[in-house]
Structure formats: C-alpha cells, structure tokens
Design a protein around this nucleic acid. Structure first.
Length: 291
DNA sequence: CACTTGACCTGTCCGC
DNA sequence: TGCGGACAGGTCAAGT
C-alpha cells in the first residue's frame, strides 16, 4: 500500500500522537508474521515501555521504546496504523476518520497505552508485519542492509543516483525505480508519476536513458514525493494516516489511475494503461515514447 | 550474477 | 444474483 510519502505522513502523525505514551498491553488478533517474540520478552521490553521516537527508513516505520527495543512495522500493500484516543463523543460525528469502530475484521495487532488510548495495526491482506526487536539490531535486518539511500535527502543527487541506477542497465527504467536497492521509497504510484514528469517511457531500458534524462527523473521523483507529503499522501484504496484520514495527492496525480482521461500536457490525448515490470502502468502515449 | 515471475493474502470489480 | 477471473500502492524466493 503505502510508499515513502504515505509512510512519512504516518510517521509525522504518530510522532505527535505517541511520544511519551506508555504501552500497557498488546493483543495480536491474527497476524502470524507479527510478534514472534515470547511472552517473557514482550513483558520485559514492550509492557511499561515509553515511546521515545518514531522514525522511518525507506517504507519501514520504527517506533523506538525506552526499553532499548523497537517496534518495526512494514505496511506492505494494505497495512494501516491508526491511533484512537480516549475522547468520548456525544451525538453527531464521532470522528471524520475513514474507518469505523476499531478493532475491526482487518485488525492484526492492538496496542493499548496507559492512558487508555490505542494504536491499531490493520492489514486486510496480511502481507505486512510488526516486529519487536532490539533497537540496535535493526540495521542488521536483511532489508536494511540492502536498501538504498533516502531520495529526499539533499545529499542524494544525480551524481549519486546515476551510477546506482546504471547497475540495472539491462532492465526497464520502471523496474529500476521500483528496485529498493537503487534508492528507497518509490512504489507504483510515484514511479508512474515521475516517469511522466520526466517524459520517459516506463519500458525504456535504463541503458537507453541518457544521464540528462536520469537527472531529470530524479528531480521529478523528489518533486512528486515532496508534493505528496505536503498533501498527506495518496489515498487510492486503503491508505489512511495515523488519524484514519485519507490523503489527497491522488487528486493531483497526472497519470496514475487516470487511464482514459486526458494527459495534463495534451488535452486531446488520453492516458493509457499497460503492464511494465509486472505492474499496472500509466502513460501518456505522446509524452512518453520508446526511443 | 542479472533479471523475471510467482507467491504471499483478502477483497472488489467486471464480464458472462 | 452468482460465479470465475483479473487485479490491487510491496517484497522475497525461486526460476530462467
């Protein structure tokens, strides 16, 4: 589900909602990939631990606890982390959250804090996971060892990007963008949006894309991701932020999920949908032509 | 090694 | 209405 801008939006929300909360209880409803820890370590390192920081690396969220342990969460396709406080609502709108009463049938883990508030980990498709592990061991996860740089860091320039992406010279530029070892955080939405922005066909081989085009593509990646963060992420189907609310980037999307609608640059040309790198892919057939 | 494909799951949508 | 199949924003294992 969420890509870098969605995970960053959730991180910001959780950071303001969870810091200094103390975990009192955890319930794993149905999530075989979450909490393989034994009861003793849960009691020792989760219960009574205080949230000290909420970080993000790539599409992974890290909730650091005062016990020197962390909750590490990957939302994959349909995961959500939704915080509910203890407010008691009278009549009228209980909340403008997109989702209703929690826990619901997709809730995999419920964390309860000492003030009675809750954090719900929902995941319709059960691809995601939440793990409890020593904070110091996070960098040793296979994923963390392999994942590439953060693209929104100022230090990540075309000079860094070009040699990394050229390691994938024989594959399509879209597959290379989705490859988290080249750099972190792009998924299907921002791959399509940035390729449209740079005027590159997603199926173009990396070796056939010039350095100048690659520099332009990186610029577009940064642009669409920063814009999306400013809009609170993209809600196409499942994504909601920490308060259960949708993001609005999808309203600004130029090609993603816009097949049959006009290209913003060409009112008479319709966006087409095809399959590239095994993924649904959206292009303007005039802006994006195989060279 | 580089690259592609299928699997992991559940829910929804579309055509018959 | 019911049913089958395709598809969904991510990643990993197994295949070529």
């Amino acid at each position: 589900m969420p890509e870098l801008p969605e995970v960053e939006t959730i991180r910001r929300g959780l950071s303001s909602l969870l810091i200094d909360k103390v975990i009192a209880r955890a319930i794993v409803h149905d999530s075989p990939k979450s909490f393989p820890n034994d009861i003793a370590s849960i009691e020792q390192f989760l219960y009574a631990a205080k949230v000290v920081a909420v970080r993000r690396r790539a599409k992974v969220l890290i909730i650091d606890l005062s016990s020197q342990y962390s909750l590490v969460v990957h939302l994959k396709m349909t995961g959500q982390l939704v915080y509910r406080g203890t407010e008691v609502f009278g009549g009228g709108h209980p909340t403008d959250s997109l989702i209703g009463e929690l826990p619901d049938r997709s809730t995999r883990v419920t964390l309860t804090f000492s003030d009675g508030s809750h954090l719900f980990f929902n995941d319709q498709r059960k691809f995601g996971w939440m793990k409890l592990m020593p904070t110091i061991e996070i960098p040793n996860l296979d994923f963390m060892k392999k994942v590439g740089p953060e693209p929104l860091e100022d230090s990540f320039t075309a000079q860094e990007f070009i040699p990394r992406v050229r390691r994938r010279n024989n594959t399509s530029i879209k597959a290379a963008l989705l490859d988290q070892t080249v750099f972190a955080g792009v998924g299907n939405i921002y791959a399509d949006e940035s390729l449209w922005g740079a005027g590159i066909h997603p199926a173009q081989k990396v070796r056939e894309v010039s350095d100048e085009q690659l520099a332009s593509l990186l610029h577009e990646v940064k642009y669409v991701m920063n814009l999306s963060i400013a809009k609170g992420g993209s809600t196409d189907r499942n994504y909601v932020n920490a308060e259960g609310k949708r993001g609005s980037y999808i309203d600004f999307a130029r090609v993603f999920r816009r097949e049959g609608l006009s290209c913003p640059r060409h009112p008479d040309v319709l966006v087409e949908k095809l399959k590239v790198a095994g993924r649904g892919t959206h292009i303007c057939p005039v802006c994006q032509v195989i060279q």
